[in-house]
């Protein structure tokens, strides 16, 4: 269990470093950086490479935004397995729903509770 924490820290930290390098060395905006990372996550899962990383690093691989792309592909593939090609379209948000719906709900609650600063 301790090993799991350690590797979650290392792998999660390294993914963040990749993001930082994209921002600092290649002068990309944060929005571009995040978009590229999500796309990379989706493509990695297409080759079946992201799932082993999750097995290995746990939250170190599921918390960074790359896992968003991975989860989208996963939902789509799962549904495609069951319902054929149309499942690609219908199953996409099956696994990912948590992140987006949480962001929407808490975003709205936040807007109700807090006032903009400065």
């Amino acid at each position: 269990m301790m090993a799991m924490f350690f590797w979650a820290f290392v792998v999660g930290g390294l993914i963040c470093v990749i993001g930082q390098i994209m921002m600092d060395v290649f002068h990309l905006t944060p929005a571009h950086t995040l978009t590229i990372l999500v796309v990379a996550g989706a493509i990695l899962d297409g080759f079946g490479l992201y799932e082993p990383l999750i097995d290995f690093a746990g939250a170190g691989a599921t918390i960074p935004i790359t896992s968003f792309g991975n989860a989208l592909v996963h939902g789509a593939l799962q549904e495609a397995d069951k319902h054929g090609i149309i499942g690609v379209l219908t199953g996409m948000f099956e696994v990912t729903s948590a992140g987006i719906s949480a962001a929407i709900v808490f975003g709205f609650i936040g807007a109700l509770l807090f006032r903009p600063k400065g």
Binding site: P52, D55, F56
Partner: peptide, 9 residues
């Protein structure tokens, strides 16, 4: 074991 978790499947 941690180092073998990559091959879990």
């Amino acid at each position: 074991k941690q180092m073998d978790r990559f091959r879990m499947k």
